[in-house]
Amino acid sequence: MSATKTSAAPRDPGIDKIPLALIPLVALVALPLIPSLPTWVTLTVAGLAMGMMIFIMASGLTLVFGLMDVMNFAHGAFITIGAFVATSVLIPLARWSDADSLWMNLAAMLPAILAAMAVAGALGWFFERVIIKPVYGQHLKQILITMGGLIVAEQLIHVIWGPDIIALPKPMTLRGSFILGDIAIGKYRIAAVVVGLAVFAAMFLVLNRTRVGLLIRAGVEDGEMVEALGYRIRRVFIGVFIAGSALAGLGGVMWALYQETVSSAMGMQVMILIFIVIIIGGLGSVGGCFIGALLVGLVANYVGFLAPKVALGSNILLMVLILLWRPQGLYPVAKR
């Protein structure tokens, strides 16, 4: 009783809304710079779509880091593998994918996506047990061994699928654009935004409404204390690692369809953006990862349009600016 009286009553701050406001802010800053409104709308949707795909690929990695301080450079391999597995499923099903029927397209896409997620998830499990487990807590070794794993995975892909870039057309229903007056919005981009929102909503619900989610959030803050409460944090970690790898596989399929090509280097290429995103968001924060991904997607598209040569540099600049403002990222995770 004395405790509550002698100290000022704390107030519930709710979620920090300033980072949320950055997304409309960036879009508004770009508005006067882009020559026409239709172009701005197209670029904004493209940026959000790209952001959603990066979020799907990055979300697992940020939790993996948050839970066990594991920095997995081989995460990109799960992205690439997912894309290649989906390609292998889609090529024999090309007639369904090319048919002008939503149901036929779905009949091709669903098995491709499920196979991609299953293989990427299984690979993630193998990777965690064989490559990550021996180097828990040893950062330098983690970097070296996961880099090595990435190279081995890339070579394996060369062996299985060959070194050439493979074309991967979008399913018929998602080709082309919706036209609203002067504005063209890519159908595939809308689909990517919908899937991204669904994945985010599902993660949000799991993290905030389930016991496993509670364990993950607590584990990101203080895994040792979670263990002292009687829970095996490593089991949680393996589960998150597998789920994160499967999501990377899903993101890989989406990214490959977006680019309409698959190459063994694609995972490596997006990893740069993914690292920027999880650093901007605050390592271990799913919400931060989501906002960071949308910011990176928007900036990449606006700058890619205005000054294509500096697109990547602009995202690095974005990261630097955000870190100058918040050194721990947009949503710093309270660490022990």
Partner: peptide
């Protein structure tokens, strides 16, 4: 766990 509510800390 600073980011978890009092209720969530105890539930866990």
């Amino acid at each position: 766990f600073a980011g978890l509510s009092v209720a969530e800390n105890l539930t866990l």
